[in-house]
């Protein structure tokens, strides 16, 4: 059952979805390519559209993957899969007044988790850079992609430009350079 597969996949991702949406990209990538729902380049476009939509990146990506794979019902079960673990855990914490952020086990779990989350995002960046030819054999095409990448990163870190404008500008550059 395709819908059940989508639901259980995102249910699993929902349970480990720590550290802001970007850390989940390698997990989503592995699962969608394993199931044959999408390839890595198609997933890059998903992330782009998720980034252009309001709301959290990981949830948006899940909805988009669900929709592309199994239409509206796919989108619904993907969103439910991402939501249910959070709902379940919040209900437990809120019911028992568990002081989560003061608990020593929670603190030390996050001590181990934070650098791993960073590693996951770096891995995602390298994977996506390779798939989308941002790094590779040097020719005009790769150099121009590397240029857009460097410009975008500079705009994000130094100018603190909002991601939505960075995406818009790179889209304009894409049309100028590659049409």
């Amino acid at each position: 059952m395709l819908l059940w597969e989508i639901f259980t996949t995102f249910l699993m991702i929902g349970f480990v979805s720590f550290g802001g949406g970007y850390a989940m990209i390698p997990v989503i990538e592995l699962e969608v390519t394993k199931h044959g729902w999408m390839n890595t380049q198609e997933l890059t476009d998903v992330i782009a559209i998720a980034g252009m939509s309001p709301g959290p990146i990981a949830t948006n990506s899940a909805i988009f993957v669900g929709y592309q794979t199994a239409d509206l019902l796919g989108a619904v079960v993907a969103a439910l899969g991402m939501m249910l673990p959070s709902l379940f855990i919040i209900l437990i914490i809120a019911t028992f007044f568990f002081k989560m952020n003061k608990n020593i086990f929670v603190k030390s779990a996050f001590y181990g988790l934070r650098p791993i989350i960073t590693g996951l995002i770096i891995y995602a960046a390298i994977r996506f850079a390779i798939t989308n030819n941002v790094v590779g054999t040097m020719n005009w095409h790769t150099a121009s992609l590397l240029g857009i990448f460097a410009l975008s990163l500079f705009a994000l870190i130094k100018i603190k430009l909002h991601p939505i404008f960075v995406i818009a500008i790179s889209a304009g550059l894409g049309i100028v350079l590659y049409y």
């Binding site: 550290g19 990448f149 975008s152 870190i157 960075v166 304009g172 894409g174």
Partner: peptide
């Protein structure tokens, strides 16, 4: 046109992911 735009956007997405790593790295590492 959309295809060309997305070639550019994909590079920006890689930058966005690196930026996410940079931001979380500032507090995590």
């Amino acid at each position: 046109y959309i295809e060309a735009a997305f070639i550019g956007i994909r590079s920006a997405i890689v930058a966005l992911i690196v930026y996410a790593a940079y931001k979380i790295g500032l507090t995590a590492i």
